[in-house]
């Protein structure tokens, strides 16, 4: 358990650092998908395998691909020095991020989370999970949320298409 946790944690965090510090954009994208995989592992450990499947499908599959498309359209060569990719405010940014990390970790560890908590509070069966999602078994708000998110997805697709279309008088 602990071994698995440690491995997954280091994978996620290491890949996250890779995203930030990599000089090649493609490498950053691949690091990102690695981080997603680590998170998916976490989901399995947290008794939500269906969610892990979603994570892999959508993030590693779709989002990474879209981002790679974006990278391809905005072609940038890989650079040799850090100066080019890192903003001027890297030190303050580091300080703020470190502060954030420390602060959040501290808060989270100090807080009483309701005594002895046991894992396994959520739905154990995928069927139950699915019913919860549709608002049948569990809280009924989810039915509405499901529909709303569907609408939102459609809107976003249309918006993406509209924003990124070529104007007729523009060159290739």
């Amino acid at each position: 358990m602990i071994v698995a946790f440690g491995f997954l944690a280091s994978m996620s965090l290491g890949c996250a650092l890779g995203v930030v510090l990599s000089r090649n954009v493609i490498h950053s994208a691949l690091f990102m998908s690695g981080s997603f995989l680590g998170i998916a592992g976490f989901f399995v450990m947290l008794n939500a395998p269906a969610l892990a499947a979603f994570q892999v499908l959508i993030y590693v599959g779709a989002v990474t691909v879209v981002i790679l498309f974006g990278i391809m359209f905005t072609q940038r060569p890989s650079v040799s020095s850090f100066r080019t990719i890192i903003q001027r405010q890297h030190m303050p940014g580091l300080v703020v991020a470190a502060g954030l990390a420390v602060f959040l970790s501290y808060i989270v560890s100090v807080q009483e989370w309701g005594g002895q908590t046991e894992p396994g509070q959520g739905p154990q069966e995928t069927a139950t999970f699915g019913e919860n999602l549709l608002g049948v078994g569990g809280p009924e708000i989810f039915g509405l949320l499901f529909q709303v998110s569907a609408v939102l997805l459609m809107v976003s697709i249309v918006a993406a298409v509209v924003i990124s279309r070529r104007k007729t008088d523009e060159g290739g």
Binding site: S12, L13, A16, L17, L94, A97, A98, L100, L104, S105
Partner: peptide, 10 residues
């Protein structure tokens, strides 16, 4: 939290 912080930093 750490993932969030790293993402913020980036």
């Amino acid at each position: 939290a750490l993932m969030f912080a790293i993402g913020a930093w980036g």
